[in-house]
Design a protein around this nucleic acid. Sequence first.
RNA 1: GCUGAAGUGGUGGAAUUGGUAGACACGUUGGACUUAAAAUCCAAUGGCCAUUAUGGCCGUGCGGGUUCAAGUCCCGCCUUCAGUACCA
Length: 1018
Amino acid sequence: MKYNFNDIEKKWQDYWAKNETFKASNNSDKPKYYVLDMFPYPSGAGLHVGHPLGYIASDIYARYKRHKGFNVLHPQGYDSFGLPAEQYAIQTGQHPAVTTEANITTYRRQLDQIGFSFDWSREVRTSNPEYYKWTQWIFIQLFESWYNYDSNKAEHIDSLIKMFEAEGNANVNAACDDDINPFTAEEWNAFSETDKQDILLKYRLTYLAETEVNWCPALGTVLANDEIVNGVSERGGHPVIRKKMTQWSMRISAYAERLLQGLDTIDWTDALKDIQKNWIGKSVGASVTFNVKDYDATIEVFTTRPDTIFGVSFMTLAPEHELVSQITTSEQKAEVKAYIEATAKRSERDRMADVKTISGVFTGAYAEHPFTKEPIPIWIGDYVLASYGTGAVMAVPCGDQRDYDFAKHFNIPIPNIFEGVDISEEAFASKDNVKIANSDFLDGMNYKKATKRAIFELEKIGQGEGKTNYRLRDAVFSRQRYWGEPFPVYYKDGMPQMIDEKHLPLTLPEVEKYLPTEEGEPPLGRADVWAWDTNTNTVCHSELVSESKGIYPLELNTMPGWAGSSWYFFRYMEEQAKRDEAFATEDALKYWENVDLYIGGSEHATGHLLYSRFWVKFLHDRGFVGVDEPFKKLINQGMILGTSAFVYRRITYLHINYKGLERWIPIRHFPIFESYSNGISIDKSFKNIDAENKFLDWLKFELPPLHHLKLKQLFGDDLIVDELNSLSNNEILEFLKGKIEFQHVKYHADVTFVNASDELDIEAFKNWRTEFKDADFITKEDGTFKVNREVEKMSKSKYNVVNPDDIVADYGADSLRLYEMFLGPLEQYKPWNTAGITGVHGFLKKLWKLYNDDNGSKVTDAEPTKDNLKTLHKTIKKVEEDIENFSFNTSVSTFMIAVNELTAQKCTSKEILELLLVLVSPYAPHIAEELWEQLGHNESISTAPFPEFEEKHLVESSKNYPISFNGKMRFTLELPLDMSMDEIEKTVLANEKTQEQLQGRTPKKVIVVPGKIVNIVG
RNA sequence: GCUGAAGUGGUGGAAUUGGUAGACACGUUGGACUUAAAAUCCAAUGGCCAUUAUGGCCGUGCGGGUUCAAGUCCCGCCUUCAGUACCA
């Protein structure tokens, strides 16, 4: 019997689907285990071989856990709202829902043929109204909440209102906007309803505020900080500018500390935790208030070094700081104004690219040092960011390199407040091993002590206090797009109102075009039916809007991509039948808790992975979920890179020396490609007689018609053209010879044209592009043409994309699964090379042959031999360890070794071969099922218990000791393991090979490590 | 600049707490089978030297160190990748 993988794989995929083999139950005696892949966006391009890497890893783990007796939840679904579908809609007019549906169909087909053990009965799609109903519901809960720093959690807004009614806002310790005025209970109770709502909005966890946002004109929407990479949009690479807009924001900053602390409770890589830590950016220090001299104002600054307060020699404000215009003296006004205008013009990108240039202007005003009362000049400079801290710094040039550079540049004094430190060249920024000097009461103290004392003294005079600052900003939540969740919000008197949750979902309206309106409103502004009738609680025609009739305009923005993905892992917990009741029922949430293993890319570190944690903490605070963190263990799979193929095209240059001007002119003629093996150099011009002759041959053929025209073009009007006219073709050739040089330009060739030995299928390449149709190829001597290989990101434009469909068709899903794992460690970036797949494919054939020969099954009831058992148990041990450590690449090698050994042992024992199948099954489930069935089982292998490792089969009586001399292994010696150290030493020394090595020397020392090694020194 | 990860044959990569470096594959070379090809099987394959077998020397980015013994630990560099971008 042959290993007919295509039939086998189809058979078992159908079987699993029909029998709902992988359907998880919310009631089980088994312990639960939840394995999840990061939410895929169903793009139009479909999958390439890099995409399933993480899915294969998580699938292996999920299948392993089933063998280990767990009730496994392993779902899949689609993050189906998003920009690409909308961009496509704008271009083609097709409704995003239609293209999204088509893309999902492709995705599903591709996923199915790889044999994943997903429970598809729990599929979710963020763009389904039954799903986004609950996204809208969560939004409402956020709106109805505020963050109480005293209880350190989110509470219902009613508790805040009660406090306002009873005692005003003086004692409220809340996460809120900066611009809140104090009010008493009496004042609160006297406020109008609109005023009250206006104030509450400043406390809500999602709030409407005019914020400076990242506006991307090309995409027509705002972007979050994590959606911008290097100053351009992550999707499409379009420029981004700063713009003030009224937007919904999420008060994630309230959770900064808990998001930071929570990292200690979860099993993520340090790399990922560090990224989040940096993004949250906690710094501990003090806020210090400086009085402005001769002006009734104060400047508050944040500093991490209050211990250096006596080193302040100037202050710098951000150009945007509100005080700047007020305190600038009349003499400095013109200069300051010019500077502010100049910095405002500079784009964010310019400012980022140019960190070196020092610029700033003196305002003419002075602040007063809180202790010495000395005047401190106040400058403005664009190295101070308006958006961080208070937008102002106390500059301590001796302790901060930026302040130092600024001071040097503008000749501001640099007082030294460090004992015995030289600051003539650069600032001393370290906190360690230094004592403070010239600082009054701080003299002689170290960083820690001085910091404490400085804060104490500042508090005493009421000009400062200890403070912690976070870099994490509130997240903008509005997008000016069509294809996203509509906000369940309408506007009454300009104030946002939530639609009652019982009327959800508020579904997306139809629009005739997916572009912003002429007035610049988001696409929803085009919807005819987009107003809220509070009488009927339904959507009605936009023209009917009338405050007096209770019909109000609806919100025109939609939610960002991360809305739906911030809670989807809870939705999977709930079975389809009960999804109407809640986002997930209490029972389901209680049973599944949170994700035990989450696998996905690290590119979501500061987006999805942070926002999800935020929402989960919020839902936890409000009692909607029991857990505080969504993902207990997280693994970032690395990327699979493409192995691009390059062909080298020879470009011919003619050397022209005209009136002393030397020039090389490229000649366009039919393409000539040269095999990489011929020693290609791109940078250097070089001569090659063969190619030169080829060119001259061509020229000879082309010369008569070209003769005058071409050469005239090449050599210019006044140059030797007249002479040329009188020359014969041969004379011209002679003239051109020696004036020709070549360079190579590399072109991507589609990797499908290249075989395992890097040889190009020339015919296929010629037919690929019309311009290469008549191309000439300078091959190797044996007639083959080699390409050069380089590793790059897998992408369409590089022609190195490998489609899993092709791999599955040629080698089968099991081969694909094994090979993706075999490539290397899961977390690592590694290149794909299709040629290597024959290795794992060959292994599967060998595995098949262990069970079958031409006459069918060869498995017998034979007693296993000692060697059989040893091989099996060695494999059990290693594979189990590997899976637990997510070291899937090494277990594939282990399988290969096991099959090689069992084949050599001619093992036919059912007892051995049956257990081997269970080991292999998580990795190559189709072949495992088929062989399992052949062995007489009529139930799926998927829940067969994982074999128990038994140490006794690995116990050896002797060991092949490496005998080394001065640490270098020279030979090995078989010795019994129960031999004593003394005896080992004696036996080894007595050995003739030892004596040969020693050549008469007496060893100084003999190290014997029983069971490991013998080392002879001397 | 700062933070983190990583540098091992022609290639992907193995190597438990320091204990036989290069497992397992790909590729390459030679051979078997075949009319031929594919498939399959066998052998060799880190570099250099030697060859009559046994062999010898060098080798895990570079330079030091600790140790009987270092890919692994310590110190100092270099390179690559990722994150971040004047964060006070």
